[in-house]
């Protein structure tokens, strides 16, 4: 009996495990760290993990990018049947479009959060949330 590494389901699910680990690392940073900058970094790491999770849910085995490029079409006439045949080997485009939105929203959130951090630093002269009285939880 030969031992095949890639038959292990843990390798197949490496994307899901990595995404969940990144999400947990981001949540840990946001919950435990005391410095405001580190909390913002934790939130953006959490964002990246969720994006990776959504993309990997939309993956189809040995699928290509959902682009009908000339290299993919070659000289095939573009009838509806040929398009359907080509589209069976493509990954799901819907999560990719949603993640494009999510990245932009995450960027806006990070920018506003960082500007709030700058204002707090100017007001209290510290970034430690233990020393800022109104930020304790």
């Amino acid at each position: 009996m030969e031992f095949k590494l890639f038959d292990l389901s843990i390798v197949e699910y490496a994307f899901f495990i990595t995404a969940v680990l990144i999400i947990l690392i981001g949540l840990y940073g946001a919950l435990v760290k005391k410095t405001l900058i580190k909390i913002v970094i934790g939130l953006s790491v959490l964002d990246a993990g969720i994006n990776l999770l959504l993309i990997s849910v939309g993956y189809v085995k040995s699928g290509t990018a959902p682009i009908f490029s000339p290299a993919l079409i070659k000289d095939m006439p573009l009838t509806l049947e040929n398009i359907k045949k080509l589209s069976e080997g493509m990954v799901d485009p819907v999560p990719q479009a949603l993640v494009l939105t999510a990245i932009v929203i995450g960027f806006g959130v990070t920018a506003v959060a960082l500007s709030l951090v700058i204002r707090l630093y100017r007001h209290h002269h510290t970034l430690n949330i233990d020393e800022i009285k109104n930020l304790k939880w």
């Binding site: 389901s9 899901f16 999770l53």
Partner: peptide, 8 residues
Amino acid sequence: LFKIDFGH
């Protein structure tokens, strides 16, 4: 997530 087959 493990209930969804990866790449299915």
